[in-house]
Amino acid sequence: MAQRSDDEVENRLTKLSAFLFLHTEHLVYALLGGLLAVTAALALLDAAGVLFEALKKFGGAQPMLDVIDRLLFLLMIVEILHTVRVSMRSGRLTCEPFLIVGLIASIRRVLVITLQSSEVMHGSMTAERQALFNASMVELGVLAGLILVMVISIFLLHRAEPQQPQAAGEE
């Protein structure tokens, strides 16, 4: 009889700890989602301000790059927020949103490097400028390979996973 009551106590403790951990996890996800939503709203306001300033200046590559950079940053935040929402809903973490965030970050970096290297090409080519240009080209090559790997990974994930009907409100 003592064995049975010990098993019942252990079973109750297991259920209680699972319940507490699950609700703690959901609370943390909800708080994280709230912080990300506030960050996204602030990033959107910042991007709108940068766009307004770029429109006032109207011209030049740097203001437009700043706008694109801010918008891509905002897109990354929204994608991470989507990941948190899906994780709360499904109870599992998927890797595709992280690949998408990495893809966006890589594209952001490609845009910055492209603008910087185009500015280096104006004027006389010194040894320092040549070294900076060469380093930029190597980084662009690495980023191109990384982007290719991430795109192939996303493609393979879509082919490997059976298509599941989306949850209500998910597009």
Rank of each mutant, 00 (worst) to 15 (best):
residue 134 N to K: 12
residue 167 A to V: 00
residue 50 V to E: 13
residue 140 L to R: 09
residue 82 H to D: 14
residue 78 V to Y: 01
residue 78 V to E: 06
residue 102 G to R: 01
residue 31 L to N: 05
residue 155 F to P: 01
residue 100 I to D: 01
residue 72 L to Y: 07
residue 72 L to E: 04
residue 25 E to V: 07
residue 64 M to E: 03
residue 5 S to A: 12
residue 97 P to D: 00
residue 36 L to V: 05
residue 152 I to G: 03
residue 120 V to Y: 02
residue 66 D to N: 04
residue 54 A to K: 09
residue 52 F to C: 13
residue 114 T to V: 09
residue 143 L to A: 13
residue 52 F to N: 13
residue 168 A to C: 07
residue 10 E to C: 04
residue 107 I to Q: 01
residue 107 I to V: 15
residue 94 T to R: 12
residue 20 L to N: 04
residue 114 T to A: 10
residue 145 G to P: 05
residue 49 G to M: 08
residue 62 Q to Y: 05
residue 127 A to N: 14
residue 16 L to H: 11
residue 119 E to P: 06
residue 105 A to H: 13
residue 143 L to R: 12
residue 98 F to H: 03
residue 147 I to G: 04
residue 80 I to H: 04
residue 129 R to S: 14
residue 127 A to I: 09
residue 93 L to S: 11
residue 168 A to H: 06
residue 130 Q to A: 15
residue 169 G to C: 10
residue 138 V to R: 00
residue 114 T to C: 12
residue 165 P to E: 00
residue 143 L to T: 05
residue 148 L to S: 12
residue 45 L to F: 10
residue 62 Q to P: 14
residue 72 L to W: 01
residue 54 A to M: 07
residue 1 M to Y: 09
residue 29 Y to D: 15
residue 56 K to G: 14
residue 170 E to T: 05
residue 70 R to K: 14
residue 80 I to C: 02
residue 112 V to L: 11
residue 161 E to Q: 03
residue 60 G to M: 09
residue 25 E to Q: 15
residue 133 F to W: 08
residue 53 E to D: 14
residue 106 S to T: 06
residue 148 L to E: 06
residue 71 L to S: 05
residue 99 L to F: 09
residue 114 T to P: 06
residue 110 V to N: 04
residue 74 L to C: 02
residue 2 A to L: 11
residue 144 A to M: 03
residue 135 A to K: 12
residue 127 A to M: 11
residue 7 D to C: 10
residue 102 G to P: 02
residue 44 L to I: 08
residue 114 T to H: 02
residue 142 V to Y: 05
residue 43 A to H: 07
residue 85 R to D: 12
residue 80 I to Y: 07
residue 8 E to A: 14
residue 96 E to I: 12
residue 60 G to N: 12
residue 142 V to W: 00
residue 122 H to N: 10
residue 106 S to F: 01
residue 90 S to D: 11
residue 48 A to D: 09
residue 133 F to S: 04
residue 27 L to R: 13
residue 80 I to T: 11
residue 113 I to V: 15
residue 102 G to I: 02
residue 17 S to W: 10
residue 97 P to W: 00
residue 85 R to L: 15
residue 5 S to N: 13
residue 149 V to Y: 08
residue 67 V to L: 10
residue 13 L to D: 05
residue 31 L to F: 14
residue 3 Q to T: 15
residue 94 T to Q: 11
residue 85 R to A: 14
residue 83 T to Q: 11
residue 42 L to K: 03
residue 41 A to M: 07
residue 161 E to I: 00
residue 91 G to I: 04
residue 72 L to H: 04
residue 83 T to R: 02
residue 20 L to P: 00
residue 31 L to G: 01
residue 112 V to I: 09
residue 71 L to C: 08
residue 31 L to S: 08
residue 140 L to K: 13
residue 128 E to Y: 02
residue 36 L to Q: 03
residue 167 A to P: 00
